[in-house]
């Protein structure tokens, strides 16, 4: 049975070592048995395999090789996903673009979630001046349009970031800057949501009980309240992966981050703007890959949430 939860009041009285171990085992067992979660995990692994395994068949040069005489060709044997506006192979581009998009999407969400949960939890739990300070800061961040930060950063960082080597490819170091920007400009919703849950949960009986027996604040936050706020955190993280992949394209368009001709799912989708009707293969493939990735993460998240749910009777 769970350590923390409204119907776990009697359990919070100690026996930590044994409880934690069995809790982990329970979570893992629930997760393993969760069909949708396993499907989600498999889907995600497939996505990662697609972007990594695909490199065995195509080189990065293939992904950027253009032949204008073969532009905008519909899917064929030679180009299973068709070609884009300068005759590049869309299949190869989804493979190499996927590496970047998955990397940016996932890491930006980690940044966002960590900051959002941290700010929200501290503000909600401690209240008072900590809450005032953190929430006023959150409001200030809200009022600054992302566009401004991006434009300023684009100027500040353009051509000044060293390149990095990853997966045998060379990236502009500003990919890291992009992850930072997306993460640091999108945590405010999550922070407010987590704070609201904390405001409510910290007044529940089981938390008061934890205080009474002298549980340290950090333990109360991490072990007792946080597991009860997992649901919105997971939803927020899932949704943010899609937003991050899409906003990468928009940010790169302002001159920072992934520069053409390097592909990403986001910029491939963006380039389909004027071809929605005339060349649907330009958006169908990168679009579907994004949807599949997000669905995978969603099912995984659902499973994780169910497994972690302290109120579920096993």
């Amino acid at each position: 049975m769970g350590v923390a939860g409204p119907n776990a009041v009697v359990d919070v009285t100690g026996q930590n070592q044994y409880q934690t171990l069995s809790w982990r085992r329970i979570v893992w067992r629930r997760f393993r048995r969760h069909r949708m979660a396993m499907a989600g995990a498999i889907l995600l692994i497939l996505m990662i395999l697609y972007t990594l395994g695909g490199t065995l068949f195509f080189t990065e040069a293939d992904a950027n090789f253009n032949d204008t005489t073969k532009m905008l060709q519909p899917p064929s044997l030679e180009h299973p996903f068709g070609t884009d506006t300068v005759g590049r192979d869309i299949l190869a581009r989804t493979i190499y673009g996927g590496q970047i998009s998955l990397m940016i999407g996932l890491s930006a969400v980690i940044v966002e979630t960590v900051v959002g949960v941290l700010v929200g939890a501290l503000a909600g739990y401690y209240g008072g001046w900590i809450d005032s300070l953190l929430m006023r800061f959150t409001e200030a961040m809200f009022t600054v349009p992302q566009l401004f930060l991006l434009l300023v950063m684009a100027r500040f960082f353009s051509g000044k970031v060293p390149e990095l080597q990853l997966l045998g490819r060379t990236f502009s170091g500003s990919v890291v800057v992009i992850v930072g920007i997306i993460g640091l400009t999108s945590w405010m919703y999550l922070a407010r949501i987590v704070r609201a849950d904390f405001l409510s949960l910290k007044e529940r009986e089981f938390i008061h009980a934890a205080h009474v027996i002298g549980t340290p604040n950090l333990a109360v936050i991490v072990r007792h309240i946080l597991p009860n706020t997992m649901a919105p955190i997971i939803v927020s993280a899932t949704l943010s992966v899609a937003s991050a992949i899409l906003s990468e394209a928009y940010i790169s368009f302002l001159g920072l981050g992934v520069q053409p001709p390097t592909a990403t799912w986001g910029n491939m989708l963006d380039r389909a703007y004027n071809y929605v009707e005339s060349a649907p293969w330009m958006w169908v493939f990168p679009g579907s890959l994004i949807v599949l990735t997000v669905l995978g993460i969603n099912f995984l998240g659902d499973g994780l949430r169910d497994a972690l749910d302290p109120t579920t009777v096993d």
Binding site: N64, F65, N66, T68, T85, V86, R88, F253, L254, G255, P260, P261, R271
Partner: peptide
């Protein structure tokens, strides 16, 4: 600039 046709020209010219 970031106009798309120019980005296409850049990619073609680079090659």
């Amino acid at each position: 600039t970031t106009r798309e046709i120019r980005q296409d020209v850049q990619a073609v010219a680079q090659q």
